[in-house]
Each structure stands twice: as C-alpha cells, then as structure tokens.
Amino acid sequence: MRDENETPESSRERMRQEELKRNPAGNLNDSFQRAQTGGLADLVGGLGWKGSGILILVLIIVGILAAIFLN
C-alpha cells in the first residue's frame, strides 16, 4: 500500500534507512569515503531527469570546447 504512492527517491531513501538499521557498521569505510566526495547516484537523484540532462549537455559542450581550444 505504501509503495503505490511512493516516489523513487523516497523509496531509495527508505531502503537505505532500513539497510542502516540492519547493518550499521557494514560499509563504514565506503560510507566515510562517499560522505567526503559525494556520489554520482546522490547527485543524479537530487537533480532529477531534467537536471541530469542539462549536466550531461554541459559536460559534452565543455569537452568539445576544450578539444577545440587545446588543439
């Protein structure tokens, strides 16, 4: 019942919280590293599909400009 109206973002967060309750120290080093550097899944999840598309376009344009000016 709860899953019908749940967004993908809230579903991921709920599953993450359940995993932390079951295994609080299992991925301690990985969690520490991710907290310092951030994760791609967190970035894309926070931006949504429009923001992710814009980010990809910006990266492609920056790559093309870099290739043009560095040649």
Score class of each variant (00 low, 15 high):
50 K>H: 02
36 Q>T: 04
10 S>D: 10
29 N>T: 04
26 G>I: 01
50 K>W: 10
16 R>G: 15
53 G>W: 14
18 E>S: 10
43 L>Y: 07
44 V>P: 00
14 R>C: 05
50 K>P: 02
43 L>Q: 12
42 D>T: 02
3 D>I: 12
39 G>S: 09
12 R>T: 02
19 E>R: 15
20 L>I: 14
1 M>D: 15
51 G>L: 06
49 W>T: 15
15 M>L: 11
17 Q>A: 14
30 D>I: 12
38 G>H: 00
1 M>W: 10
30 D>K: 13
34 R>M: 05
32 F>M: 13
29 N>E: 05
7 T>E: 07
25 A>G: 01
12 R>L: 13
31 S>R: 12
1 M>H: 09
15 M>G: 11
47 L>K: 04
53 G>K: 07
49 W>A: 10
16 R>C: 08
14 R>M: 07
36 Q>E: 03
38 G>N: 09
12 R>Q: 00
16 R>D: 06
8 P>Y: 00
19 E>I: 13
13 E>K: 08
44 V>W: 00
45 G>V: 06
48 G>Y: 03
40 L>N: 01
47 L>Y: 01
2 R>T: 01
17 Q>S: 07
13 E>G: 06
51 G>Y: 08
34 R>A: 03
37 T>G: 09
10 S>N: 07
31 S>L: 11
10 S>A: 14
12 R>D: 01
24 P>I: 04
48 G>R: 02
45 G>A: 02
34 R>F: 01
37 T>P: 04
39 G>C: 01
41 A>Q: 08
35 A>Y: 04
14 R>N: 13
48 G>K: 03
41 A>V: 12
35 A>I: 10
7 T>P: 03
21 K>V: 02
9 E>Y: 05
7 T>M: 11
15 M>D: 11
4 E>V: 15
14 R>A: 03
25 A>R: 11
1 M>N: 07
8 P>F: 09
45 G>T: 05
18 E>T: 04
8 P>S: 04
52 S>N: 09
42 D>A: 09
3 D>F: 04
20 L>E: 13
37 T>V: 06
48 G>A: 12
22 R>Q: 14
11 S>A: 05
45 G>D: 00
5 N>H: 11
33 Q>N: 05
45 G>R: 00
36 Q>H: 15
39 G>H: 12
47 L>I: 12
27 N>M: 15
11 S>K: 10
49 W>D: 06
33 Q>G: 11
42 D>I: 07
30 D>H: 09
16 R>K: 13
53 G>H: 14
5 N>G: 14
36 Q>P: 02
1 M>A: 13
29 N>P: 03
15 M>N: 08
34 R>E: 00
49 W>S: 14
36 Q>R: 04
14 R>W: 06
47 L>P: 06
24 P>L: 00
27 N>F: 03
15 M>K: 09
